[in-house]
């Protein structure tokens, strides 16, 4: 490992430690709460102090529902199914159908996540920017985008944190 290094400095190395993993999981939960509360803030704002005639309707709820469903799907996949295939023995065995199922469901989850972010941007543009609203009203659309971005970031952080642990346990098991 040490002598087949190309550069003088190692570019990027995932640290293998349990503390970093739990930090990542905590950070992911905090980011998810940030997203949910950013959206709920827009909802309550639209109900209470909203001076304009634009309100948060069910259209604004659709992207965050998509993001939450996508995060649930992505993180409930057993990652060993994908890992088995990546190690190269998933070709002809009986596990290939489950590997394919895992891939399809994972694709569904990621497209739900991306669709949530894209949908929130679409709502921002079509509902707020195209009608030239000024900022206190525009803030409801912006917080929708912030909420979906935070949920996607939380999903990414959770995925990376769990993969850190997988590497750790492999390096101890082998």
């Amino acid at each position: 490992m040490e002598q087949d290094r190309l550069f003088r400095f190692q570019a990027f190395k995932l640290p293998n430690s349990l503390a970093l993993r739990s930090c990542g999981v905590y950070l992911s939960g905090a980011l998810y709460a940030l997203g949910v509360w950013a959206f709920l803030d827009a909802v309550i704002y639209s109900k209470t102090v909203n001076a304009s005639d634009v309100h948060v309707t069910f259209v604004d709820w659709i992207p965050i529902i998509c993001s939450t469903l996508g995060m649930l799907i992505v993180n409930s996949i057993e990652k060993n199914r994908l890992l088995n295939d990546a190690l190269g023995n998933g070709g002809f065995g009986g596990s290939s159908t489950t590997t394919w199922a895992a891939r399809v469901i994972l694709f569904l989850g990621f497209s739900l996540l991306a669709g949530g972010v894209a949908g929130s941007i679409v709502v921002l543009i079509l509902k707020f920017l195209m009608k030239h609203y000024s900022f206190p009203t525009l803030g409801m659309g912006v917080s929708n985008v912030v909420a979906n971005g935070a949920i996607m970031l939380s999903c990414i952080v959770l995925w990376v944190a769990q993969n850190i642990e997988d590497e750790y346990s492999y390096s101890l098991a082998l």
Partner: peptide, 8 residues
């Protein structure tokens, strides 16, 4: 995850 969610 739930703990961090509740604290935040």
């Amino acid at each position: 995850f739930i703990t961090a969610f509740l604290v935040a």
